[in-house]
Design a protein around this nucleic acid. Structure first.
Lengths: 329, 329
DNA sequence: CTGAAAGCGCTAACAA
DNA sequence: TTGTTAGCGCTTTCAG
């Protein structure tokens, strides 16, 4: 049923119906008539036609690299919460870690389809920046701090610093790190920097063998730990960029008969279920992923209503959670 | 820029432009002209206006109870993969386990907005069935077998049966189960039934104390295990409806000094990362969640192009993965 | 406050 | 193969 048919059914004009669903500049009589007809027919106006007039989709595009990650799930959970509170819906694009799909989605979103975009990026190339610069809808970047754009991010450097320092203050002298690619400025570069700062402040030297770059998964963490811990000279603590990596390292230690935390402390960022339920529960930095999602959505919604063009950066703090993996025994 | 302006710019008619973006019934000259103009202007047609004509949104609504679950993430991952392969996009609605939101989303989707719906339901009430019956777009239900509707689901009963039987065949005589509410016909009822069938076939009797109903999370699993294992008379194996619950039970066993698997075997359904990385790795039934998502999406896409109205049910088999938690020592 | 009528950006039927 | 023209279902003037 379309608006014309419905208007006839209800015994009012098309305009009255339209007004009922929009401003509501309407007498009570008509309103009643319309409400009665709705109850009887279940009519609701088609969104697409409306959109083609007033250019508002009530849709927010959310671009993510993958879904099989606890942290990303949590961010999206936060986004969906804030969005649905304001009557917006979520158009989810999974890029499967494919940079080109990230770009093409942004381009798809540039003109129409969505009112705004939230981008959970990992690596930002020049191409990204160029495409982002040409967007005609507001964009918020979540999880990364990219100058000149709206961002909601974490204090990654601080978290890495605090965790490393925590282990050093417990007397460890031979720190190691298993990190991820520095192309990822947050989980990569910033956490390397935090580690480095703590180590430098303590006046320690870290041999190259004690710094490994891993992928994001547990298996890769396991391999890197195996490689690092197979030599003669061993570190006495490892800071891992993510919980999954730490979990892999922990598994290797168990296998190799290395006592955690006595001979090897381990700490990492993320506070995942995995780390909480591990054989040796992991000391970790809790990042407020869900809050990040909620805040990113709220920032976008704000950008949608006021239409100033000032870029804002919101940084969320972390929380250190000490568990068995760094306990002094 | 709209189609008229663009047509003028390119030096062709509106129809030529429209055709370019649709069928493509077009000479090479015009095509070239248009391509050149696109390169210069970045024009792309607004989707909303198109939709208001041909009533196709290229959007699929996906309704989920929550995102903070490994299994659900995997299903959605599969859906997004299949959908994007066919040029469809994913409108995600998170109901936060709120039944009313589930209903209202279905109603929202009934008329317009999306071409089809995939529902990851848990509990199906009469209201659900009534609303589902009134949908004007195709619907596929994932993870549940609801008669009369398109479904992609698992052999939950079989998985539960196989896991329970596996433990009984290893000589265990006092089986227990920690399940979830039977309102959930898949993770609840079916798994209870599978357990029951294996136990009956073995001619064993299960006291009421050995059957607990838990929530879906680890903490609840812990509590139920604690309650069950605090009495004098203990079971010698526990089948848990989900990995999270089993993980809770495992944690309690460690705390209580109960030796897994020697004094207590544990098995559960789900094959989550958690169970794989656990202190005592969990024997589990792998359910093909990602495949479920992919198949559900493909079933929907099929329903979209052929327009028969036959309801189909696709059942996916499970795979038993034996790990330490059920090993005979 | 109301209804008629014009128009949103696009697609599709039509005649050429 | 093309351009003209008439819609799609809705919103928004504009007189009244």
């Amino acid at each position: 049923m379309n608006i014309s048919e419905f208007a006839v059914y209800a015994g009012v004009s098309k305009s009255a119906v339209s007004r009922y669903f929009n401003d509501g500049y309407l007498s009570d009589d008509k309103r009643e008539l319309i409400e009665k007809a709705i109850a009887e027919t279940g009519y609701s106006p088609g969104i697409s036609a409306r959109t083609s007039k007033n250019r508002v989709t009530k849709l927010v595009g959310v671009i993510i690299p993958k879904l099989s990650s606890e942290s990303i799930s949590r961010v999206v959970e936060g986004i969906s919460e804030a969005l649905s509170a304001e009557g917006y819906e979520l158009l989810l694009v999974n890029t499967f870690n494919d940079c080109r799909k990230e770009i093409s989605s942004l381009e798809l979103f540039r003109n129409n389809r969505v009112d705004g975009v939230i981008l959970l990026g990992t690596v930002f190339t020049d191409l990204h920046l160029s495409v982002l610069g040409k967007m005609h809808v507001p964009v918020v970047i979540a999880g990364q701090n990219v100058k000149g754009f709206n961002c909601v991010c974490h204090n990654d450097e601080g978290a890495a610093y605090a965790l490393t320092k925590l282990m050093l203050e417990k007397g460890r002298k031979k720190p190691a790190m298993i990190g991820v690619t520095k192309d990822d400025r947050s989980a990569g570069l910033s956490r390397w920097n935090g580690f480095r700062r703590a180590v430098d402040e303590a006046g320690l030297d870290v041999p190259a063998r004690f710094m490994e770059t891993s992928r994001f998964d547990m298996d890769s963490g396991y391999e890197k730990a195996k490689f690092m811990l197979s030599g003669g000279h061993l570190p006495d603590c490892i800071f891992c960029a993510t919980d999954s990596i730490a979990m892999g390292a922990l598994l290797y230690c168990r296998e190799a008969g290395i006592d955690v935390p006595k001979d090897m402390m381990i700490a990492s960022v993320g506070d995942s279920k995995l780390g909480r339920a591990a054989f040796i529960p992991l000391t970790t930095a809790h990042l407020h992923y869900k809050t990040e999602g909620r805040d990113a959505a709220e920032m976008l919604l704000m950008a949608l209503k006021r239409s100033d063009t000032v870029a804002r950066t919101l940084e969320l703090d972390y929380e250190i959670i000490e568990r068995l993996s760094t306990e002094t025994v």
